[in-house]
Structures are given as C-alpha cells and as structure tokens.
C-alpha cells in the first residue's frame, strides 16, 4: 500500500485539481512529491507512468463512453483517421509520460538529500 497506493492516490488527487481550473500539468507536481517521498528513480518512472496513463485514459474513456464515441470519431478523422481507442491511448500516453517523468525527477531530487548508500539502507 505504501509503495503503490498512497503515492498513486496522491498523484490522482493532485491531478484532479485540473478539473477546478488549475493547469492540466498540475498532476506533475503531485507526481514529483510522490517520487520524492515514496519512490526510487526507476521505480518512480514506472509507477508514475502507470498511474498517469491509467488516470488520463480512464477519464478520457469515461467522457468517450457517456458521449457514445461521437466526438472521438470526429476528432480521430481530423488526425489521420485515429480510432477512439487510439485517441484514448494517446491521451493516456501523454499523461503517463508527464507523470512518470515528474515522479522520476522527484525521486532524483530525493537522492540529492541522501548522503551514501549505507545510511540510506539503514534508514529504510
């Protein structure tokens, strides 16, 4: 839970602030925090990307669903004939990339505060 659940929830909660007028990349700040507090760099990238992709794709999928795919079909045609699911995937990909990179940056920032391998191991 500590490794997966809390940081993921943190990322999602901060990301959701974008529904209330904050910029869409606000989730990146949440991800950086999550990376800083909970994750090591490689882990941060993998778990952050997963959390971001899931969130962005799920929300896109939700709107696509209530809309019966009407708009995504039209937008897909505007961009080289993409299918709805490809648009959802592209959305997830962008969200995942931003969140993953931010989480990794956070984790790397945390690394700056660690003195050496021994002390880090002991603290854990």
């Amino acid at each position: 839970m500590k490794k997966y659940g809390f940081p993921t929830l943190l990322i999602w909660a901060v990301s959701a602030l974008a529904f209330f007028g904050l910029p869409w990349w606000i989730g990146a700040i949440g991800a950086a925090l999550a990376g800083f507090i909970y994750w090591r760099p490689a882990q941060a990238f993998a778990l952050g990307t997963t959390a971001g992709t899931l969130l962005w794709a799920a929300i896109a999928g939700f709107f696509n669903n209530i809309n019966g795919g009407l708009l995504a079909a039209k937008i897909g045609q505007l961009f080289q004939g993409l299918q709805s699911w490809q648009l959802i995937l592209a959305t997830g990909f962008i969200g995942g990339l931003v969140i993953g990179m931010a989480a990794m940056s956070g984790a790397l920032a945390r690394d700056l505060t660690r003195k050496d391998k021994y002390r880090r191991r002991r603290r854990r």
Binding site: S15, A16, A18, F19, W24, W56, I59, A60, F63, N64, I66, N67, L70, L71, A72, I75, L87, A90, T91, I94, G95
Partner: peptide, 11 residues
C-alpha cells in the same frame, strides 16, 4: 488531449 480541460470535455 488532456482529459481535464481538453477536447474530451466537449464530449
């Protein structure tokens, strides 16, 4: 593309 304020919100 972002699902918070992008085109998905017009769906």
């Amino acid at each position: 593309l972002n699902p918070f304020s992008g085109f998905w919100r017009n769906a």
